[in-house]
Design a protein around this nucleic acid. Structure first.
Lengths: 187, 187, 187, 187
DNA sequence: TATGAATGAGATTTCATTCAT
DNA sequence: AATGAATGAAATCTCATTCAT
């Protein structure tokens, strides 16, 4: 049954992504993935040909879902409001749902070559969402940035690391506002 | 001879730190460390009781040297200038000398418990250097920050991740100025 | 199949117990255990998490089987006859089946902490079988002992060491009768 | 200086004997021996050509000293008194001075071949002291034994294991009297 | 589909031994 | 006489992968 299979695969990917986030590529072993899913290692090999393939798929799924949600946010209104909404949502996902994922977007050279490229691609797509808003704001003069690239890098870095210290809603707000300063018009 | 021993230990730590940076904790194996030093694995165990101990020492040495250099920068002058100097120097070290080290300051839970605490302590000392300047600037009104903690977190995140995309001096400057916006007085 | 697994485990434990008896804890290596079973070292780790765990299980199994057999002996009749039967059976097992096992009942501090406690527990259960008879004999006046504890200690020591010098049935009988003198009523 | 050397050697042997007793042949490593003596491993090799040679010498020294002290006890008087004195002294040495040594006299096959033979020889000389008294007592009719060999074996086993449970002087007395029952004339 | 068993390569760790100083 | 450094062989342990059922 394709249905069943799809669910199974999704469950595996979600679990793998969690563990990957907790411990990084080399720190995760298939035994643990299997155990958390309450199946045996052997089963994983029915769905994925190798650890690398499983890992790549897990990253892909996580990244895709994440970007989907960011892209689903309203695409109109003043850039400041749109950027604020993006930041808030991104941080919220990072902190509440995938504390794991900071490893995916920071420290890419932790991963073996094949995964590295996929991660870069994902991050690129991810990046595009923010880039569009920042560039629009810069164009209209509502934002003042030193340069777009470093601004995006710092936005990302700041958001990705959030799971390490952000807990409360108030901290989410503070981080959001702090990051907004990166594009603020100066005195 | 204590001298000789010290040098040997330093050589081992430097090599370990390099590899650690290239591949992360789980990706490093003692065989490689030994080979790069042109000794046998057994020798490493003469100096360090375990892989973990070696790794901890390597991190410690790297972190200590780094903070020393930041603390050596002039401690007077307007906060903006001092913060600019700190950021520039930190990024320069990260990019030019220890691209490795982003692992030390980000992603602490990649490490086994014992290392985790040491890393946190190092990062804390490191942090204090920046915190002093930011707090002073906030007190004198030269800086305007949403809150000190998120500001420091973003500063760190932004700097630590620099090795991943910063190459030229011009990019170092742009990143420095971008980060300075986090404390800039707003219109 | 639980059945199959059980057999496999039993085979491993028996082999381990043999080697343990031949060479002691530190003298046994898993390579040898594996080779004797015609499997790879890795396989042993499928069943046991560590050398220590394997060894503990081997001891446990041996001790349990042994005590089972002693407890299966008739529990009625005059204490002298019952003690004689116990001694004879114990010595017979030690000499004919588990020359190994003197290590289990003597020299407990040869073992790492975790094993030590298990061994003590086993020995205690073992001890209880003999203690019951000796105490009954002492109560009814059929036995005369200096004190129960040292008597049991010497009974044990004498039996456990038997494999080192006892070979013939006649020697088994002589040892049995010699040990019975420990509880004999005196002139 | 021969004097100095002799003392050094004696110190090494004593330390080795202690550790050997605590942990058995395979459980002892030269690092530990050296550390307890506050010298380096290398030094041990100045005095002994190998671990085995050191171990053999340590056993030899311990056994010789021990037998010397037993042979120094008065060799006249009624066998019961002489045996009582021998037992008491042996147990006292075992419990108070060389709790270690039970490994030497029990479990000989823990040792590599060369040591094994030396240990047997030592034990044999040791045995002769007790054998003389038991045989005399048997000849004069003061003792009644099932047979001399098993009696000696049990005497030894009981005494050697004493360090494992005997602590107080009272326990030493009880063990001594319990062992004397092995040669007691029966009702 | 899924499992349990097994493997083999490679990683960490231990330790007797050697040797230049 | 003694040390510190280093080695290399062997031991313990880990884990991705395979496979019969």
């Amino acid at each position: 049954m394709a249905r069943k299979r799809g669910e199974r695969v999704r469950a595996i990917l979600a679990t793998a992504a969690d563990l990957l986030g907790e411990r990084g590529y080399a720190g995760v072993n298939l035994e643990d993935v299997a155990e958390r899913l309450d199946v045996t290692k052997g089963s994983l090999y029915y769905y994925f040909a190798s650890k690398d393939e499983l890992v790549t798929a897990a990253i892909e799924a996580l990244g895709a879902e994440w970007t989907d949600r960011l892209e689903a946010l309203p695409a109109h209104g003043p850039p400041t409001e749109r950027l604020r909404a993006l930041l808030r949502e991104h941080i919220r996902i990072a902190v509440r749902e995938h504390p794991a994922a900071l490893r995916l977007f920071l420290v890419p050279d932790e991963w073996p070559e094949p995964q590295r490229d996929r991660i870069k691609a994902l991050r690129h797509r991810h990046d595009a969402v923010f880039r569009a808003v920042v560039e629009e704001g810069a164009r209209t003069g509502e934002f003042a940035v030193v340069a777009v690239d470093p601004t995006l890098q710092v936005l990302h870095a700041g958001m990705s690391q959030a799971p390490l210290w952000v807990r409360t809603d108030r901290e989410i707000e503070q981080l959001t506002e702090t990051l907004l300063k990166l594009v603020a018009a100066t005195a």
